[in-house]
């Protein structure tokens, strides 16, 4: 067995990876296997996390005709790996970056929605959220209040956002692509 093959088996044993997941990783070229291993070690990817990485990487490769090592070497992924962060924050940052490569238009739309909601400037008593993966046509508006005056002020504020069109903009964005 080659060096990389041994290293993968060792990692799989440490993380209790299933045989199909290990076999899938092993089916890649040695260069690609080797490109993922230090990242998996750094992020301590478990079975489910690794499976997400394998899915997304293979899907990007099939779509864009690139190599896995090429994707993993991109600055968007390398930057969070080189930044001093906790393991959890680093994992989240790398996953977010990889998701953006895998779902570029969905991620862009989510970013636009977040920006439009931030621009509403509704303060910390109002929370506006959109459906997971943007499936559906409803946004959720939650109001926190301690008194009826706070409710009234928030409703007036929302009324103003309705009138100036900025709340409508959030709805419009839900299917703007």
């Amino acid at each position: 067995m080659s060096g990389i093959a041994n290293s993968l088996v060792t990692y799989a044993r440490e993380k209790h990876l299933s045989t199909p997941t290990l076999q899938r990783w092993q089916s890649w070229s040695e260069e690609d296997q080797a490109a993922l291993l230090p990242i998996a070690r750094e992020l301590q990817l478990n079975e489910n996390q690794l499976r997400d990485f394998l899915d997304w990487l293979e899907e990007i490769v099939a779509r864009d005709g690139v190599t896995i090592r090429g994707v993993l070497g991109r600055p968007e992924l390398q930057h969070p790996l080189e930044t001093k962060l906790s393991r959890n924050d680093k994992l989240k940052a790398v996953k977010d970056a990889l998701r953006k490569l895998r779902y570029p238009r969905l991620s862009q739309l989510e970013d636009d929605l977040r920006a439009a909601i931030k621009a509403l400037d509704l303060g910390n008593r109002v929370r506006v959220s959109f459906p997971a993966a943007l499936e559906g046509n409803e946004i959720t508006i939650e109001i926190k209040a301690r008194t009826s005056e706070e409710v009234r002020d928030t409703v007036l504020q929302l009324q103003q956002k309705l009138e100036d069109g900025s709340l409508q903009r959030v709805f419009d964005l839900l299917d703007e692509i």
Partner: peptide, 28 residues
């Protein structure tokens, strides 16, 4: 079908548990 490209679209899980192209894109 390890070589398939059909899994590479921007598909997400919908309310019925099935994966589809995300709503805004499929509406488009």
């Amino acid at each position: 079908f390890p070589q398939t490209r059909i899994l590479s679209g921007e598909q997400v899980v919908c309310a019925d548990g099935k994966w589809r192209t995300f709503q805004a894109l499929r509406v488009k």
